[in-house]
Design a protein around this nucleic acid. Structure first.
Length: 105
DNA sequence: ATAAGGGCACCGC
DNA sequence: CGCGGTGCCCTTA
């Protein structure tokens, strides 16, 4: 039992909302939660990721489209993204802004 | 309660 | 465009 807080719950919710072939940013999730400044906290929450397979943390990238990191290895993240239709080049998402999914809608 | 860490974002050079 | 420094937030020990 992880005893997660509302914050993390929202993080996972937002992350799960990200459709396949689409990517989002920690910042976007942070805003969805209500604290755009909590971008680090978001990453931390995803890092623990008690819902690993349920939460597609690999669809979450940095504001510049860089993969930044991944609990299972960024290389794995790239592979998953490419398999979902997201072209990843040089550890960065191609057409990032075009594939960017805005959760707060 | 305090200290440190973590998958960030922004600003300046 | 890349690097370094800074600020905010959350979790765990």
């Amino acid at each position: 039992m992880k005893t997660i807080s509302s914050f993390q719950k929202l993080v996972y919710e937002a992350t799960k909302k990200i459709p396949r072939g689409r990517v989002s940013t920690y910042f976007q999730i942070a805003k969805y939660i209500g604290n755009e400044k909590a971008c680090r906290a978001v990453g931390n929450a995803l890092n623990k990721n008690p819902f690993a397979p349920k939460v597609p943390c690999h669809r979450v990238v940095s504001s510049s489209g860089s993969l930044s990191g991944y609990a299972f290895g960024k290389e794995k993240k790239i592979t998953l993204l490419k398999k979902e239709g997201v072209m990843v080049i040089n550890n960065k998402v191609e057409d990032f802004k075009n594939k960017l999914f805005k959760i707060k809608e």
